[in-house]
Simulated scan of single mutants.
Amino acid sequence: MTVQPSIRKIYFDVADRRQMFRLFDRHAPRPNRFEVDAAPLYAGEWFEIGRTEHDYMLEILPPLWMRGEMFAMREFLTDTVTSVFYTLWIDSKTRYFHAYCDLSVARSAVEIRDVIVERESRPVKAMTRAERLEHVWSATHDEYRGYAGERFLPELRGKRTIVVHGLGSSELKLLEDLTDAEIADRLPEHLRHLSVKAAA
């Protein structure tokens, strides 16, 4: 199983309720779902939501805690990872976000908040290749994404895959092996033409 970098944005539009629930468990079909600790896989993932979705989640259950501009869900995804929702003032606008925080790590919710504010305050909008791949993975329907199985070399098994349609045929490729053109084809128009930012 491939573990992603520590704190990362996984969707580059404002998620509506349907998309929000899809993103909550976008790793559901992973192999060994109940045998491997999922905390490293989910912790640090974040995306933007609307106010309606934020308020809906606040009203479902009493929060585990509320601190200033954030609250944590009482129900945990893993032993230590739960949803934290943020209301943040960025560039003179109130915006709302969801993140998975590992509460066993001191200040994880604050650190993710700071990353969100820094990422969303950039004057020039650009996406790294890794961010483009995360958006493609998040936006692709479950039927067209999965994990490398026995058709792949042993060292590649468990990596994320995606179906690529060509002229009269389909191919299963590793997500990380998508070409820039294949990535662009899977991005919405308003993201397709953003410049590619070099990874930090």
Rank of each mutant, 00 (worst) to 15 (best):
P123T: 06
A139T: 08
S104W: 00
A72T: 03
R30T: 12
T87L: 12
K173E: 06
D180N: 13
K9I: 00
L64V: 03
A43T: 09
S92N: 15
P63W: 01
K9M: 04
H54P: 01
V110P: 01
R18Y: 11
Y147N: 08
F76L: 08
C101H: 03
R119A: 14
E120S: 07
Y86C: 02
E120C: 11
T52K: 13
V164W: 04
R18L: 10
A28M: 10
G149V: 02
R157P: 09
A199D: 15
R17W: 10
R8Q: 10
D16Y: 01
L175I: 04
R145F: 05
E59P: 00
R119I: 04
F24D: 14
T2E: 13
V196N: 00
R30E: 13
E118C: 09
Y11R: 08
S138W: 00
E155D: 11
E134M: 08
G158T: 09
Y56E: 13
F85H: 14
A38R: 13
I183S: 05
L58R: 15
R192E: 01
A184S: 12
I162S: 05
S138D: 05
A72K: 05
A130D: 13
F47H: 10
A99G: 04
D114G: 07
V163S: 08
P29I: 08
E69W: 00
E53V: 12
R145I: 07
S170D: 09
H190E: 09
M70H: 05
S6A: 14
Y42R: 02
I183H: 02
R113I: 05
Y42M: 07
T87Y: 07
M20T: 15
M127S: 02
K125Q: 14
Y147T: 03
H193F: 12
L167K: 10
H190S: 04
E111W: 05
D180E: 14
E134S: 10
L167M: 08
V84P: 05
A72W: 01
E118T: 15
F76M: 13
V117K: 05
E131S: 09
A184E: 11
I162L: 07
Y144F: 14
S169Y: 13
I90Q: 03
T140F: 01
R22W: 02
Q19Y: 00
F21E: 13
R151C: 08
S6K: 14
S92C: 12
L41I: 15
A38K: 11
A126K: 11
T52C: 02
R30Q: 14
E111T: 12
Y96R: 04
A184T: 10
R22G: 05
D102C: 08
T128W: 02
D91K: 13
V110T: 15
V84N: 03
I112W: 03
K9H: 10
Y147D: 09
R160G: 01
L23E: 06
E171T: 13
F85T: 03
S104L: 01
P29A: 10
R151T: 13
Y56A: 12
F97D: 03
P5N: 10
Y56L: 14
A43K: 04
V84K: 03
I90N: 03
L172I: 14
T2V: 15
L61W: 09
E48Y: 02
I7M: 06
R22M: 09
R26M: 12
Y147R: 05
P5R: 12
F85V: 04
G158W: 05
I7Y: 04
A184I: 00
T52I: 10
H165I: 10
